[in-house]
Design a protein around this nucleic acid. Sequence first.
DNA 1: AATGAATGAGAGTTCATTCAT
DNA 2: TATGAATGAACTCTCATTCAT
Lengths: 208, 208, 208, 208
Amino acid sequence: MPYNDKQLHILQTAEKLFAIRGYDGTSVRDIADKAGVNLAMISYYFGSKLKLMEALFEQRSLHIKMRVKDLLHDSRTLPIQKMEMLVDEYIDRIVEKQQFFKIMICEQVINKNPVIISLINELKLKNAEAITMIIKEGQKQGSFKKNIDVVLLMSTLVGTASQVMISLKYYREFNKLESITNKEFISLVTLKLRKHLKTIFKAFLLNE
Amino acid sequence: MPYNDKQLHILQTAEKLFAIRGYDGTSVRDIADKAGVNLAMISYYFGSKLKLMEALFEQRSLHIKMRVKDLLHDSRTLPIQKMEMLVDEYIDRIVEKQQFFKIMICEQVINKNPVIISLINELKLKNAEAITMIIKEGQKQGSFKKNIDVVLLMSTLVGTASQVMISLKYYREFNKLESITNKEFISLVTLKLRKHLKTIFKAFLLNE
Amino acid sequence: MPYNDKQLHILQTAEKLFAIRGYDGTSVRDIADKAGVNLAMISYYFGSKLKLMEALFEQRSLHIKMRVKDLLHDSRTLPIQKMEMLVDEYIDRIVEKQQFFKIMICEQVINKNPVIISLINELKLKNAEAITMIIKEGQKQGSFKKNIDVVLLMSTLVGTASQVMISLKYYREFNKLESITNKEFISLVTLKLRKHLKTIFKAFLLNE
Amino acid sequence: MPYNDKQLHILQTAEKLFAIRGYDGTSVRDIADKAGVNLAMISYYFGSKLKLMEALFEQRSLHIKMRVKDLLHDSRTLPIQKMEMLVDEYIDRIVEKQQFFKIMICEQVINKNPVIISLINELKLKNAEAITMIIKEGQKQGSFKKNIDVVLLMSTLVGTASQVMISLKYYREFNKLESITNKEFISLVTLKLRKHLKTIFKAFLLNE
DNA sequence: AATGAATGAGAGTTCATTCAT
DNA sequence: TATGAATGAACTCTCATTCAT
């Protein structure tokens, strides 16, 4: 679990390759070559290709949970403000961890590895719980609607962001933004996404 | 292009398998076995595994374009109603052609095959154009906001629906809907999605 | 089951190599190289290395059963004569199918593959049954002893012959028989073994 | 040669594994794991897997030679009695050192390692010499036959015992002896083997 | 037009061994 | 003296594709 530098480097390389070629489209040899390590090293460290993938998931899952603890006990912030903060933060994380999100999407589609699926579901559940608590707070205060479908709300958040992430190139071309740098483009998209989804959340959550 | 029955059967089988195992996770042998045809027949009919995939895309792309022609010249329907009709119809199509949408998602993530990517982009462009025309109509009439990001709007539509499609099992468990039949469940989800996305679209498009 | 010439050739080559290097000491590549066939051919024809081994066993098992049917209904031959004929014939077969017997010995020692072990046990059982029937006939006639341990008797036959087979070189050197040809040497050993084991059988079976 | 406790433990573990999985079927890692020692330690202590095997053979060979010295100068015991004592003792040793005998059998079959083969042959030669001396004594006294094939006699002894050892399970099932304990079963088999082979030896050695 | 047979290339994994410490 | 880390080589098996028929 506490991986050394070499192991972390392998994990990072694997993440990159899995994200752009898919799990089945990436060979252990590819990873070894790109990471500059011996082929046998990967089995030596992780046991197998599958275990490597699982290790990657366990490692990354930790970093993409919504952090909601501090928010909950903050009585000076309105529920809708809390929700907006959460949306902003989560979108940042999706943008930052694009590669891992891409892997997650494909793994959900293919739905082959139960270990990974359960890790994903656990993650979703945690996030849904976090959101639910804020929603309940908002409903108690009377500012939020009743009968909110949490999963649908989360799906809009994750789905929209994911869709944008996998269509970045198309988005750029469509809006004729080839002239700005990649970094600027990512910033722009992030801001747009944040605003877009916060608008949606507000429309979806608030009364009137 | 005018495929015979056997070819269509192979395409259909390939679609199924690509959707649940991914392109690289499906072997030509798998397809041949499941379709009950000779292994060599696939190369013989389609040239290669890659060409089979491309053939599948070309074939299916035709069926999932938004049909907007009739709507456009209908002056008795309000732009927002047209948009709602479009959303309903497209969601139905995503639900109906789940498998193909799953393949599309993975192919966009993996982004390996330029032929397929350009087919997808072409499709997106067509859909964006359709949407744009209705938006312009709405803006002209004054009921729609200005500065609407079409790609973001489409991403919300496709992304949310896709996300729900790949999380059906999770959605069902989360909402404790294991008792109803699968068909009923799909109907329920479709209705929910329709309502959800129409709400979002209205919030996003309409002034005030 | 009805193997073609190529398959039979592979089986024969595998038998040779398994006999002199052992199963684990022989690689599929070795077999392919020595048989002059493509490496993938072996998996193609037999499925796997293990299945190849099992196929070999099933094929060869057929050829090394004791043939006792005709003997049983022959009332003009004495039981002890029948037994002698059986011993002669079985020793011939052990000598002739040396390689396969060597594989059998190692497989019994290693005792890893249950399929093969059960094939061997089945073979032993068949042989024990054949022997038992003749023994019963001899006991009925009063010429054979009572309380004969069939397994011990068979173990002496098979064990002695096997031991000689795996020590042929030592046997030759010990008896300074390097001058005669290999064929002559084998004939000599066969005759010696026949006589030796028939003597033992007589001493073991006959009263007084 | 004077191995320390750890080395002896490794040798013992190796013997066990080589006996049940064969030399090629046992990995150095298997031995290290089962012995609870570091993997590199085996190469460090013994040089290589092959050298480990040879060390095992040299070590064990010492313990399985026939002990005949005291017998030879005992003039009060008849040659046939001496032979019977030898048979009893050797069978005990085969039963006791089953594992090593199994390894010996496979090594003879596979016949790959000349060092081991020569160790085995040396051992056989020593045993043959011991037997020969007693036979000569019996022939001198007139009680033994002339023209006795020592190797054939030894092959019957070793072969029969080995065959029984590698078929213990079959033997037990055939004779329906599953109810008694394993220890009792081994005792029973040992006694049977002793009696059986002494009978054979007498029939083979004595005049009339 | 259709297919059984065949194959080179590459997949993931394990191997015995070595080396720096 | 003893060992964790590392590795080149080899393993079995599957892959997409081709070719003779």
